[in-house]
Design a protein around this nucleic acid. Structure first.
Lengths: 205, 205
DNA sequence: AAAAACAAACCGACTAGTCGGTTTTAAAAA
DNA sequence: TTTTTAAAACCGACTAGTCGGTTTGTTTTT
């Protein structure tokens, strides 16, 4: 099936934004590489701004969907956390260019768009924090740690990956995720949680 | 002592770049807010590009200096790691705007500038990785973890802070760093390392 | 025929950098 | 001390080029 002009514009702009940044790419450049025209562009998108928004929205919506699914499909804090971390593998394999644009160019979203995106980003963060808090309540995670800081530590560790991970590098995203899960779990579990983490085979060695 | 035009340009542009991004700020805007002129600007900087480079270089040079000092002033892997993490507190207090620009706008550095900056960034990463490897060799850090992934996990956790930390928020950078140190150490130390970490009072509870 | 999808030419606003000139600073000469 | 000199610092109108977006024209689909 042939790709529509709209799809070609989206793919091309993702690729270009990722490499040169939003302001480093002109609409002319996009339509040239996408094999269309200014008319084709503005027929499909109201503005360059809206295109940037669409990229953001497609990505964050997917991430939220997978995270919420991870939550509902699992029943314990440890398995939920593990599933959320796993879901990030797929995000990386499928949405690598989106991630870069999402974290580097969101400053250039106009005000209303930025609000919508920030709300969704918050929903993601709060879900993860909820898992941590529930784990503390169940006695699986250490109570002396502030859940919000732990949440941001995890998000930072994971998100930063887009800065250095290479698809053709020496390690796959699966292998890296396995190590991240080990690091995260070992740093926050209690004695009780350690047992379940080992049972679920989420630790290395 | 009165601030020079060059200093005023640097401070103003940092503030503006941080808020609107490199391309969201015009040279006219900078000189207006800095209380100077186009002539004053181009007398002190060859180009807008060079100004962006200077911001990057001042920051990364400071970070490297502090990290290398942390290494030479301490003699064990655990104390060295702890000192490097501590040094980040000062970076945050003094260089917050630099950090944002450094991590968001480096895409717009021209090629030669980007190379210089990337080399320095690598030096920092390699120093941290060296500490991890030496800790594995001494038996303080777990051998089964790949040092390069652990390094990037730590860097990610730390660096991401610039995205969410608020100077006037509920926690100080010192408190956050204490938690980060606990998380990092607990996830990578061996039984042997755990003893020293506790002796050095680097763990919570 | 009517509408949707695109193409191509065009426009107005904006921007990095320039350049001729002026002011300030500071050292050297009287 | 006062004057001369010249270099460094700074000013701001101007330009050449660029870019997002619009308008008009053409083809394809329904």
């Amino acid at each position: 099936m042939k790709k529509s002009v709209k799809e070609r514009i989206l793919e091309t702009s993702l690729h270009l934004f990722q490499e040169h940044g939003y302001h480093g790419v002109t609409v002319d450049k996009i339509v040239l590489e996408a094999g269309t025209s200014k008319g084709g562009f503005y027929h499909n998108y109201k503005s360059k701004d809206e295109l940037l928004y669409e990229i953001h929205d497609v990505f964050i919506s997917y991430v939220i969907e997978k995270a919420e699914l991870s939550y509902t499909e699992n029943k314990t804090p440890i398995s939920r956390l593990s599933a959320i971390l796993n879901s990030f593998i797929k995000v990386f394999d499928m949405y690598k260019p989106y991630i870069t644009v999402f974290y580097e160019e969101s400053a250039y979203l106009n005000h209303e768009f930025k609000q919508v995106i920030n709300e969704k980003r918050d929903r993601y963060r709060k879900l993860l924090e909820k898992v941590i808090v529930e784990g503390q309540e169940s006695g699986d995670f250490r109570n002396e740690l502030p859940a919000n800081i732990v949440t941001m530590a995890i998000i930072g560790m994971i998100n930063w990956t887009y800065k250095w991970f290479k698809q053709d590098g020496p390690m796959t995203m699966e292998e890296i995720t396995a190590i991240f899960k080990d690091l995260i779990l070992r740093s926050i579990v209690t004695e009780q949680g350690l047992v379940e983490a080992k049972q679920l085979n989420q630790l290395i060695e």
